[in-house]
């Protein structure tokens, strides 16, 4: 459970010579009833872990696709409490690590200690909080540690080297390398300096480095995968599920994780 489950799952994929692929889905988009099925589907497609978004009314790090998914989820009545209960209900059957991505306020209002303990209870393995920089994290880091939940830090292309090194040192499970200067959302190309940035993080990190934000195609996943351990894909996955294109989800994941993929 927790940090170890993520590390083991990643090792297993890497030993099988696969790139890591972590799909992001919005909890409650399409209803919480489908959550279990969707997670199992993603696991079968080859996902190394699942990043599960908790909807928030004011998601400042997200672009339009995830914003809209969040609005749909909130309109369905999705709450952090309900998501944790749902995860708890099928945790025994689940074989893929779950990482919650949530803005700080829902955690704050839920109560930090109760949040960490309920996450543990529900079998949540890791947490990502996009609006919590290192300077403010102490009050949450302690509770997460006490419950052995991996606290995954985000690095940014604007961060100076000392901050990147510090983030690489602090992170648990893996390091989330935000690969654009911007919000989440599909893009066709990444900035020039993304390679040097990923290489620097790789050199300084003892855990896998995954690139996320703006990744939407097998091509990009393969390209970025040359410089780090894999990718996180959010907006594109959310959009494909919303449009019922589950076969495309499968081919996106399968193409991305394959080390035999020939770049077109």
């Amino acid at each position: 459970m927790g940090k170890e489950r993520i590390e083991n799952a990643f090792l297993e994929k890497q030993s099988a010579n696969e790139n890591l692929f972590v799909p992001y889905i919005m909890a409650g988009d399409g209803g919480l009833e489908i959550l279990e099925k969707r997670i199992e589907f993603l696991k079968k497609c080859g996902a190394a872990a699942i990043e599960l978004g908790i909807p928030f009314s004011d998601p400042v790090a997200d672009g339009p696709t995830i914003q809209e998914a969040g609005i749909r989820a909130l309109e369905n009545g999705t709450t952090l409490t309900a998501v944790l209960e749902k995860l708890n209900s099928f945790q025994e059957k689940r074989t893929v690590p779950i990482i919650l991505m949530t803005y700080l306020n829902p955690i704050y209002v839920y109560g930090v200690e109760k949040f960490a303990s309920d996450c543990r209870e529900a079998g949540v393995d890791g947490i990502i909080i996009p609006d919590l920089p290192m300077e403010e994290e102490a009050f949450i880091a302690e509770s997460l540690k006490a419950h052995s939940i991996a606290f995954i830090r985000l690095a940014a292309m604007t961060s100076p080297i000392e901050r990147l090194v510090e983030l690489a040192n602090r992170t648990e499970g893996f390091l989330y390398a935000v690969a654009v200067t911007g919000t989440t959302g599909a893009r066709t190309v990444h900035e020039e300096n993304v390679k040097a940035y990923l290489q620097l993080l790789k050199e300084n990190s003892s855990v896998p480095v995954l690139a996320g934000f703006g990744v939407s195609s097998v091509q990009q996943a393969q390209d970025l995968g040359t410089y780090c351990d894999g990718v996180i894909v959010g907006s594109k996955i959310v959009e494909l599920f919303y449009n019922g294109k589950t076969e495309e989800v499968k081919s996106l994941i399968k193409g991305s994780i394959s080390n035999e993929y020939i770049l077109g």
């Binding site: 609006d131 920089p133 940014a156 604007t158 983030l167 935000v178």
Partner: peptide, 12 residues
Amino acid sequence: GGRFVPELLMPA
């Protein structure tokens, strides 16, 4: 108070 912003904005 404090500063609860994405890492991307911290340097700024």
